[in-house]
Write a protein that binds this DNA or RNA. Structure first.
Lengths: 119, 119
DNA sequence: CTGCTCGCTCACCTCAGGGTAACCACCCAC
DNA sequence: GTGGGTGGTTACCCTGAGGTGAGCGAGCAG
């Protein structure tokens, strides 16, 4: 789906956006990313608790996709009970940084929409 | 779905992201945004041509949503044949700017993935 | 009169992403 | 033995975003 992606486009403005959108396109991915960016390493159950509403299946599949995309590192220890820890890769951290301005924009819009003075 | 949105969070890092994701969550929205950001004003058919693959129904509904979100301005002239022009609002321009780092990240990843030396 | 343009709208259909829930293998506390 | 906790997997279902195609209302070229 490289519709607007014209390599060598002199504009140099957007055109990598859809790649990024595919990576963060999952319903919960940015939330996982956010949960992951705070601690050095998170465990599965920890993430499940940090992202209320997500199911185990979806959390697992999202983590797998993010790992395949190279933004999440997965370390599993051969213990019992099993222990697996997830962390961000360099690319993941950079993605998070790239998400910051977007978050700022979102917050700005939120304030403008619902300026409830804390009831 | 304000799960992770904790207003007053001392962290001040993410937490507006999902608002932004709702706005640009549509399949073609960033492409429309990109098409819109270059010219001052675009017509419907022009946009349809600039975003190959999109259907009229989806283009219309996305434009409507983006208008409701306050990032697109719509000006319709009472002429025959009908003429309607779309442009970005201030917020839309800022959203585009906020998307830039994400696009840069996407481009970076693209290069890393498929470093084909232009066949 | 026919057909074309323009910016949509409507009715219908498809399909994949996500939700539900049960289950696995293992060990520990009770 | 029973229950709970670990990190998953598998099967199935279901909703809603998006795709398909047709048509409309008005005027103008031919």
């Amino acid at each position: 789906m490289a519709t607007l992606n014209r390599p060598g486009d002199g504009d140099g403005h957007l055109c990598g956006i859809d790649t990024a959108m595919e990576v963060i396109g999952g319903k919960w991915k940015v939330l996982i990313l956010w949960a992951l960016h705070e601690g050095p390493e998170r465990r599965f159950g920890e993430l499940r608790r940090m992202v209320p509403g997500i199911t185990e299946k979806v959390l697992a599949s999202h983590l797998r996709e993010m790992e395949a995309d190279g933004i999440v590192r997965r370390v599993s220890y051969d213990e019992v009970p099993p222990r697996v820890e997830y962390g961000l890769t360099k690319a993941g951290v950079r993605l998070n940084d790239a998400l910051e301005p977007l978050a700022a924009w979102g917050r700005e819009v939120q304030e403008r929409r619902g300026p409830e003075g804390a009831p």
